[in-house]
């Protein structure tokens, strides 16, 4: 596959990247505020998008607000470029903005993602846009929205650790496999969108700008480049990623996040890299192979 498939120019009759320019500015203003207060949820006037809620309307609007004609867009869903959600969003921008698209992480300038951070290390000139179903990390422990906001304002996050306490007390360890909350820049508690625990360390001091959009909840938040991101834990029970030396049955990698695929009714399983781009290039002779 080529590094980037050139776009054919925007669809006539539509605004560039679907949203009108004033809306794109409004979203960019919200994003600037979000970058200025890392981890803080900033409300924005989310628009109706031609996509149902839950399919990435928040991420879609951020991407629409950021796209320029020279951008190269990559869209992944659970790490895969060829999932329905990823394919349709990629095609949406290829048609409405006429921008180039790619499946290669290193060739993209904007990567919209659902539930994963690519295995290939990101660069300072890249932007990672997350689709977030629920931006409120306290939702599980505090159902009152107003109270949750007061807790953010006062950095009163003890309650968030209660959920971890319960897991350790019941199971001897934190069992939460994804959406493990993080403290951004030593201040705000944030939901890492539901990425697996495995990806949490990649949030920390990432050279790329990370933007999070929740369409239904109408909030955006951000982790600017090189921002400290600490996964919530206890001093004596630190955050860890489960060590697992299972290898990808396609590329043989043992240091990637694997999808489990059940092959038959007898429980035969295969494990594959969730990041399809990384896996393919690993098989082709390593990520640096052109």
């Amino acid at each position: 596959m080529s590094a980037a498939s050139p776009g054919a120019g925007p669809l006539p009759g539509y605004n560039f990247a679907y949203l009108d320019e004033q809306t794109r500015r409004m979203i960019r203003r919200a994003l600037l505020k979000a970058v200025a207060i890392p981890g803080h949820q900033v409300p924005f006037a989310a628009r109706e998008m031609p996509l149902p809620y839950g399919w990435g309307t928040g991420g879609l609007q951020i991407t629409a607000a950021l796209l320029g004609r020279d951008d190269v867009l990559k869209v992944i869903d659970q790490g895969a470029d060829d999932a329905t959600n990823a394919t349709s969003i990629r095609r949406f921008f290829a048609r409405t903005a006429g921008v180039a698209t790619t499946e290669r992480t290193d060739a993209a300038s904007i990567i919209q993602t659902r539930h994963r951070i690519p295995e290939t290390p990101l660069r300072p000139d890249q932007v990672l846009v997350y689709q977030v179903p629920d931006p409120e990390p306290l939702r599980g422990v505090e159902t009152r929205e107003a109270e949750a906001r007061r807790m953010h304002a006062a950095a009163d996050y003890g309650l968030a650790r209660v959920a971890l306490y319960e897991q350790i007390a019941h199971y001897g360890r934190v069992r939460q496999a994804y959406n493990h909350p993080v403290i951004v820049n030593r201040r705000y508690l944030a939901s890492p969108s539901p990425i697996p625990r495995f990806d949490n360390p990649k949030l920390d001091h990432s050279p790329a700008l990370q933007l999070f959009g929740a369409g239904r909840e109408r909030r955006v938040y951000a982790i600017p480049p090189h921002t400290p991101v600490h996964s919530l834990d206890f001093d004596d029970v630190p955050f860890t990623v489960d060590a697992d030396d299972t290898a990808c049955s396609l590329c043989g990698a043992t240091d990637t996040y694997l999808d489990e695929i059940v092959l038959d009714d007898h429980g035969t399983r295969r494990y594959l890299c969730s990041d399809t781009d990384f896996c393919r290039r690993n098989r082709d002779g390593g990520p640096d192979h052109e």
Binding site: D156, G158, L159, R161, I168, A169, D235
Partner: peptide
């Protein structure tokens, strides 16, 4: 236990033990 633990956590205790 979690109910008793919560106020301590909110007071900044970060050691599970």
């Amino acid at each position: 236990g979690a109910n008793v633990a919560e106020p301590l956590l909110r007071c900044g205790e970060t050691r599970y033990g």
